[in-house]
Design a protein around this nucleic acid. Sequence first.
DNA 1: CGTGACGTTGAAGAAGGTCAACCAATGTGG
DNA 2: CCACATTGGTTGACCTTCTTCAACGTCACG
Lengths: 254, 254
Amino acid sequence: MSETRHNLQGFLDKLLSRSILSAKEQQAILDLPGYAAQVSANRDFVRLGEMVDHACLVVDGTVGQFCNNRKGERQITAFHIPGDMANVHSVVLPTATAALQALSTSTILWIPQTAIQAAIRHHPAIAEAVWRDCMVDAAILSQWVVNIGRRDATSRVAHLLCEIATRCSGTPNKHDLTFELCLTQVHLADATGLTPVHVNRTLMALRERGLVTFRSRQVTIHDWEKLSMVGEFDPTYLQAGIKPDERQRILRAA
Amino acid sequence: MSETRHNLQGFLDKLLSRSILSAKEQQAILDLPGYAAQVSANRDFVRLGEMVDHACLVVDGTVGQFCNNRKGERQITAFHIPGDMANVHSVVLPTATAALQALSTSTILWIPQTAIQAAIRHHPAIAEAVWRDCMVDAAILSQWVVNIGRRDATSRVAHLLCEIATRCSGTPNKHDLTFELCLTQVHLADATGLTPVHVNRTLMALRERGLVTFRSRQVTIHDWEKLSMVGEFDPTYLQAGIKPDERQRILRAA
DNA sequence: CGTGACGTTGAAGAAGGTCAACCAATGTGG
DNA sequence: CCACATTGGTTGACCTTCTTCAACGTCACG
């Protein structure tokens, strides 16, 4: 049980970075029940159109949200890293509009919808915080549309790497930033709307220009300035360091 | 004032198609204050990064949400038609992460955020309904990523036309469906991540195959079956005809 | 009857896709 | 400890889709 609580802390921290919650409300989140389970790589654990009765909190690993086109090609529409609740939106929209797959071996904390709904009912401010979280995800999605629709391969890959780096490690405004990324080049291709072959060539080009290295699941960004320039990356949409006075609070405690 | 109320009715109807609201809650939405103003075509009325203090309900015309890349090329990330509140998300995320432009001469009802916040505070179920609405928009966005990332030009345009047709006219499962679409081929290009020239050729190909005609702002779908097949269009993500028992209600009246 | 916005057309070129092979690292059973 | 299979990454040759550029058509409107 304290294990569960520990996992929920990451999720709570993310909420608190953008919303204000009282001690009671914070406790209500930490008290959410759930059971953890390992999901092996490449396994779908939520299917398209399914009625979802549990939210999936990523404790460890990487999860992808995706759809397939008729030819069976896959488009990843979101990456979820530890601390993300992969399908919070199912609280208000229980029918899954996309599938979820573990991209690497992952640990998922399954939280009953009923418990989340009860928490929200007793503490409307939690609804507000979660809603705000959903809207940041929507802003990310919106940037993905821009990325895929109006940037060439090099910029797309650079932008994606910048986004993931920022989400993984806060504000990485330093040189030689390294982090672990449990993804293959195929996953990057499915996220950027490119071919694995072309992602490979693009990554090599970025490597040769001394901007970033991605080898054996380790990403090293050698030159953040240039990489974010190439990827046209502006982190404000991630609302990471949102100022306290902007974390407005609409809903009162019941 | 009754004018304002009339315009809000469209928005309320959209909420009611997916959520349950009591008579009092419905009235609170109809009582929202606001002032209508005309915006001429191609005018930005919300800028990127701006702090938004009014929500924009589209009363008439078409509004586009968009971002630019460095080269100044535009990517439209959403179309808003009458009855849509173009930036509801600003209720919880007041800093605009995308700009808004009138794509045709439009009438906008400006509703103060404070009024929406007050309504939400007094009637948490309104928050739930609006949140659900936001999540449908996110589902649409997610489909755009798939469309742009993993479909060829013909399918992209077909899918977009199917989506707009469904949103404009409910469930259009009939032949020779006609509706007005205040967009140019350039707008379709900016939405699909293509070139205006290529959209033109694609539209002509669709026309020659007898699937759809788009001339002088009139779209006529001659063969819905084939068009939605070409566009791989499955309307479930729009959650239009969501069953009453799925419009669950989490938040009680205060 | 000019002017501007939109749509249409053709020719040439570039970005990225496809296919097929090969390499390197890791893991597994004998 | 080695033979072998598997997974992920790399390479090259060729081809397709879409872009680019630049021109022209056409309709509405003042």
